[in-house]
Simulated assay, not measured.
Amino acid sequence: MARRPIQLGRPELAAEIAERYRKAKSGWQKTRLLCAKLASEGQHQSAQIAAMCGCGPSRVFDWLKMLRNGGIEGLLQRDKPGPRAGDFRLLKGKPRVKKQLQEGLQQGRWKTSPQLSRWLKEKHGLEVKHNTALTWLKKIGGVLRVPRPRHPKRGSDVEMEQFKASLGEKLEALQLPRGTKVKVWVMDEARFGLHTDLRRVWVPKGACPVVERQTKYEWDYLYGSLEVTGGEAHFAHLPTVNLDCDALYLKELSASDPEAVHVVIRDNAGFHLRDGDQRLPERVRIVPLPPYSPELNPCEQAWDVIKDEVSNQCYRSIDKLRDALLPSLKRFWQDAQAVLRLVGRPWLQDQANASYPG
């Protein structure tokens, strides 16, 4: 059944509407008057009028209701626009609130914009939408970042700084004979598997990326060490993590330079041998990191770089996965500067060089 044309029902206004439309200069007024003019002709459906006015049909009915109730002046009446999303006019005369916003951001008081909206309502009686709160956070210098996870049992920041400051003393406490060739490594392990790891990808603006993903619980472990002063890298694939695999890996690391003593800085995981353990290779010494402090180990950054290379892809076997990892590992084997950029932390390099010069 065909829709009938709209009938304005105010024939006395038709001539005046046409005249006001001809003289109108403001764009929004001209659009509303065009809508009224087309409706007064009684020849167009609401969808046709909406298409000619560049609006939706519901807006056409809203404008005609304004015309019927208030005449042409009612049609051309428009409320003053309120503050735009993120406009600080809501805080006009409230400098204390703005200062508290800046202090709260520095203290990490809000993790999300809805939390800020609730705080503004509870503490200051301000009704602020989430998108406005988000814009305010940006305007006072906030950025949205994915946080690094932290274990509840991790030590305080003070303890982390104390470890950095005392690393040189810990290295000297190993009491290696003067003139001994020493290599200082940071070491860690990472798990890689056939379960597809999804990460951000580059796509044209407006496109929705789609990545093939498989759910397959088969894993491989990559042991790795980065040398702090010379930029060497050493990696090995092993099927699991345990004390036997740890001893095997350290034996291979020691064999990479049989004349050197290899000082390995790493965490105290349960599958790691401790310094002085009989199963340690003869020329390997261990310096433990503070508990639950991966941010002190540059190997964590290496794993992130390597995982970027193999993410968003499906591998049919562990051998295929190892082949895909090889180009990333070669980058560290062949480019000492790539390693030194990762381990280039003054507290680490300076104290290693000072403890074992040359």
Rank of each mutant, 00 (worst) to 15 (best):
M1G: 15
R4V: 10
Q7H: 14
L8E: 14
P11C: 09
E19C: 11
C35I: 15
A36L: 09
A36I: 08
E41P: 07
S46E: 14
I49Q: 10
G56F: 02
G56S: 12
S58R: 14
V60R: 04
F61S: 15
G70D: 12
R78K: 14
P81M: 12
G82Y: 09
P95S: 05
R96G: 08
Q100K: 13
L101Q: 10
G104E: 09
L105D: 08
G108Y: 10
G108C: 11
R109V: 13
T112Q: 12
S113V: 01
R118T: 11
E122K: 11
L126W: 02
V128I: 13
T132A: 13
A133P: 02
L134V: 00
W136K: 03
I140E: 03
G142N: 03
R145I: 10
H151M: 07
P152S: 08
G155A: 09
S156L: 07
E159H: 03
Q162V: 09
K164Q: 14
A165N: 12
L174W: 01
L176T: 03
G179H: 10
D188R: 03
A190H: 05
T196S: 08
R213H: 03
R213T: 09
T215C: 00
Y217R: 07
L222Q: 02
V228W: 00
H234W: 04
H234S: 07
F235Y: 09
P239Q: 04
P239R: 05
D244F: 00
C245A: 11
C245S: 10
D246P: 00
L248Y: 10
Y249K: 01
E252I: 00
E252M: 08
S254N: 04
H262V: 01
D267Y: 00
N268I: 00
H272F: 07
D275N: 15
D275G: 12
P281A: 04
I286S: 02
V287L: 05
P290Q: 06
Y292I: 06
S293K: 03
P294H: 09
E295L: 04
E295C: 05
C299T: 09
Q301R: 15
A302P: 00
A302L: 14
E309K: 10
V310E: 03
V310M: 02
S311N: 11
S311H: 09
N312P: 08
C314Q: 12
I318V: 14
L321C: 05
L326E: 15
S328H: 06
S328W: 04
K330H: 14
R331V: 05
Q334I: 02
A336E: 15
L340F: 11
L340E: 11
V343P: 06
R345M: 12
P346H: 13
A352L: 06
S355R: 12
P357E: 08
G358R: 15
